[in-house]
Nucleic acid binder design. Sequence first.
DNA 1: TTGACAACTATTCTTTTGTATAGTATCTAA
DNA 2: TTAGATACTATACAAAAGAATAGTTGTCAA
Lengths: 202, 202
Amino acid sequence: MKTLTSRQQAVLSFVEEYFQQQGYPPTVREVAAHFGIQPRAADDHLSALKRKGYLHREPGRSRGLALTGRQPELVVEVPILGQIAAGQPLLATEQVEDTLPLPRSWVQGEEVFLLRVTGDSMAPLILPGDLVMVRVQPRVARGDIAAVLVFDEATIKRVYEEAGGLVLKGDNPDFTPLRFSPGEAAELVQILGKVVGVYRSL
Amino acid sequence: MKTLTSRQQAVLSFVEEYFQQQGYPPTVREVAAHFGIQPRAADDHLSALKRKGYLHREPGRSRGLALTGRQPELVVEVPILGQIAAGQPLLATEQVEDTLPLPRSWVQGEEVFLLRVTGDSMAPLILPGDLVMVRVQPRVARGDIAAVLVFDEATIKRVYEEAGGLVLKGDNPDFTPLRFSPGEAAELVQILGKVVGVYRSL
DNA sequence: TTGACAACTATTCTTTTGTATAGTATCTAA
DNA sequence: TTAGATACTATACAAAAGAATAGTTGTCAA
């Protein structure tokens, strides 16, 4: 198999991801739109990928590209984590309480889990009993809501990483922000991932 | 899961086989050609299959059909309604903008739909951009949050039915409650159903 | 016996989509 | 240094495809 340029690799990845999410391949124009280029340029990339054997194209057919041995899923089984223990790998089977089938379009990214909210420190945006979807990532943007492991306990807070240390703040003013020096933070605090969705049953 | 007619079963089998062989789903016209029928007839079959939850269709896209993840008992296709018009039957196909596969455990009751929230009258519990799940029912308990059709426009409000009339109140104090005399209410207000879930993407 | 559903025909309209022509600019290996 | 690959722009066209309008026929249950 011939090697791909980084651009071609990116196009292939996009096609694979699109396929996983939608259940069918993208059009040439959708590839073009995703990369902000003209259809012709996208066509060039897809031709190159076909020439190098990475995908199959059926001339003249809409979405006529196929990746060998792909099984698309419309629904993804997302694990609900019970108690989260520090140290352990996050998605270890002992921690998975249940799984829920969610539409692929709601699941952004690779590693994702659900967490049942207990406290109301993030009220009114996130309430006790809510289910939050967390995309696993080791760092988040300033002010993002994240699932954070503090002293062996998982909580949902806004994260502010600063030179002076780390601050975990709830939206609810009744809760005092937690402040950590850089040293403490490294030892006691672990960002599990960014909260990307909230699901509430009324 | 609803049962299929033998013809619908045959169409579903063809879609599955085609998908397995080609790596992408068939077009409506290809289904039609395979059975020797008109595109419109094939479209009818595919619509029926979508309605019964056996596959997902993306309106307007070529080959925009995807097979549901083969555990249909766990997943229910919930319609997302666009503009809701008074008089029309609620789940009329013209009003259905799309459908989303949701876990059965989240879907309470038979007739359920999703609505995209536009105003912030129910802030902070429900925010613009949220998706709310509505269980269709003609009346709700006092103080329940409901999807209500007022003057041909669908809104989310708390409903207070009293001897003196009907009051629709938003949680957001910036919004003045709407009051209707019993006569006005009967004429202008229609309760679509109770809001049983809120889904928010962050 | 009415009405909903299923299963179609025939035709048409409008988008979507693949692909083409005709270029430019950059880089790289012979 | 020069041919070939890469990575694009801009425009255009014809075919493919979704979806709609407007029906017909048959079945089956209330």
